[in-house]
Amino acid sequence: MNTRLCNILALCCAFATAGTRAEEIIIAVAANFAAPMEAISQQFERRTGHKVRLAIGSSGKFFAQIHHGAPFQAFFSADQAKPAQLERDGLTLPGSRITYARGRLVLWSADPGAVDASGSALKQGTYHKLAIANPKLAPYGAAALEVLEGLGLESASRRHRVQGENIAQTFQFVASGNADLGLVALSQVTRNGKISQGSAWLVPEDLYSPILQDAVILESGRNSAAVNAFWQYVQSDAARKIMESYGYRPPASAATIQ
């Protein structure tokens, strides 16, 4: 039996099991993945009858909250390190960790004419404020700092930078006009594979470490049929198409932290 057919059968079995009793599950989701996760959750709810409550925020804060007993049943992080550490700490369902997406970074402005295809606005310093996410809490912030350092702009940009607590707040700084430019997640400005607003430079991926994003089922989701069904659905072709429409690369070749 080929792999594709096995996946289809597993998905059908998960849906059949889940259909016996509707549940509500609570999932913690990194801010960069909010829009695709909302779309995936809505589609999942329509198909299964289960309900999904999403908590959207900083991966770093969720990591701390999970250690303090937050009632999440699954965690979709913006990196690999935090789910791997939760696994080592015994707070997850063994064997549940997956790499669900590979994120990308863009230089973005709400002004349609502010950013060209080479990112010259950043390189030439022709801006007043540049928004990045907190590098200590947000993987996209760490990637942004790598880009600035790689381009030799870290020192020159320092006095112009404003820092968001997470990538959602960083995006809002730019969308509201409080920052001219921002290094944000491609998923925040992409719809159906195209930049949906403003102007953007897709930052070359050789300027920052791969943003591989892992998810894990937490201990409280161990016996949930709905969580199991959702896990199958997130890895389905239907969910993958949604992710790709927001600019995420498939994680098939991504190496997972051991």
Rank of each mutant, 00 (worst) to 15 (best):
residue 1 M to V: 12
residue 2 N to I: 10
residue 5 L to A: 10
residue 7 N to E: 15
residue 12 C to S: 14
residue 12 C to N: 12
residue 12 C to I: 15
residue 12 C to V: 15
residue 12 C to Q: 14
residue 13 C to D: 11
residue 16 A to V: 13
residue 20 T to Y: 10
residue 22 A to G: 08
residue 24 E to C: 07
residue 24 E to Q: 15
residue 25 I to Y: 01
residue 25 I to Q: 06
residue 26 I to G: 00
residue 28 A to D: 06
residue 28 A to Y: 01
residue 29 V to I: 13
residue 30 A to S: 13
residue 31 A to L: 08
residue 35 A to L: 14
residue 36 P to V: 04
residue 38 E to W: 00
residue 40 I to K: 10
residue 41 S to T: 05
residue 43 Q to W: 01
residue 43 Q to A: 11
residue 48 T to P: 07
residue 49 G to R: 09
residue 51 K to D: 03
residue 52 V to G: 07
residue 54 L to N: 07
residue 61 K to R: 15
residue 66 I to Q: 12
residue 66 I to A: 12
residue 68 H to E: 10
residue 71 P to V: 10
residue 77 S to K: 05
residue 80 Q to T: 09
residue 82 K to Y: 10
residue 83 P to V: 05
residue 84 A to N: 09
residue 84 A to D: 10
residue 88 R to L: 12
residue 89 D to P: 13
residue 90 G to H: 06
residue 90 G to S: 09
residue 92 T to N: 03
residue 93 L to Q: 12
residue 93 L to N: 04
residue 95 G to E: 09
residue 95 G to R: 05
residue 95 G to A: 10
residue 97 R to C: 05
residue 98 I to A: 09
residue 99 T to M: 11
residue 100 Y to E: 02
residue 102 R to G: 00
residue 105 L to V: 13
residue 106 V to C: 06
residue 107 L to V: 13
residue 110 A to E: 00
residue 114 A to N: 02
residue 115 V to T: 08
residue 115 V to N: 03
residue 115 V to H: 04
residue 118 S to P: 00
residue 119 G to T: 02
residue 119 G to S: 06
residue 123 K to Y: 01
residue 124 Q to G: 12
residue 125 G to Y: 07
residue 126 T to E: 10
residue 132 I to L: 14
residue 132 I to C: 11
residue 132 I to P: 06
residue 132 I to K: 12
residue 132 I to H: 11
residue 134 N to M: 02
residue 135 P to H: 05
residue 136 K to M: 09
residue 139 P to R: 05
residue 141 G to D: 02
residue 143 A to V: 03
residue 143 A to I: 04
residue 144 A to C: 06
residue 149 E to K: 12
residue 150 G to V: 00
residue 152 G to E: 08
residue 153 L to R: 10
residue 154 E to S: 13
residue 155 S to E: 15
residue 158 R to T: 04
residue 160 H to D: 01
residue 161 R to H: 08
residue 161 R to L: 15
residue 161 R to F: 08
residue 164 G to V: 07
residue 164 G to Y: 04
residue 164 G to M: 09
residue 165 E to I: 12
residue 166 N to D: 15
residue 168 A to V: 02
residue 174 V to P: 00
residue 174 V to H: 00
residue 174 V to M: 00
residue 176 S to A: 11
residue 176 S to Y: 02
residue 176 S to N: 11
residue 179 A to L: 01
residue 183 L to W: 02
residue 188 Q to Y: 07
residue 188 Q to W: 03
residue 197 Q to M: 09
residue 199 S to A: 12
residue 199 S to G: 05
residue 201 W to H: 04
residue 205 E to A: 05
residue 209 S to F: 01
residue 210 P to R: 02
residue 215 A to P: 03
residue 217 I to H: 05
residue 219 E to Y: 11
residue 223 N to Q: 14
residue 224 S to Y: 01
residue 224 S to P: 03
residue 228 N to Y: 05
residue 234 V to A: 12
residue 236 S to V: 13
residue 238 A to I: 08
residue 239 A to W: 02
residue 239 A to G: 03
residue 241 K to N: 11
residue 245 S to W: 07
residue 246 Y to M: 07
residue 248 Y to I: 04
residue 248 Y to C: 05
residue 248 Y to P: 06
residue 249 R to Q: 13
residue 256 T to H: 01
residue 256 T to G: 14
residue 257 I to F: 10
residue 257 I to W: 05
residue 257 I to S: 08
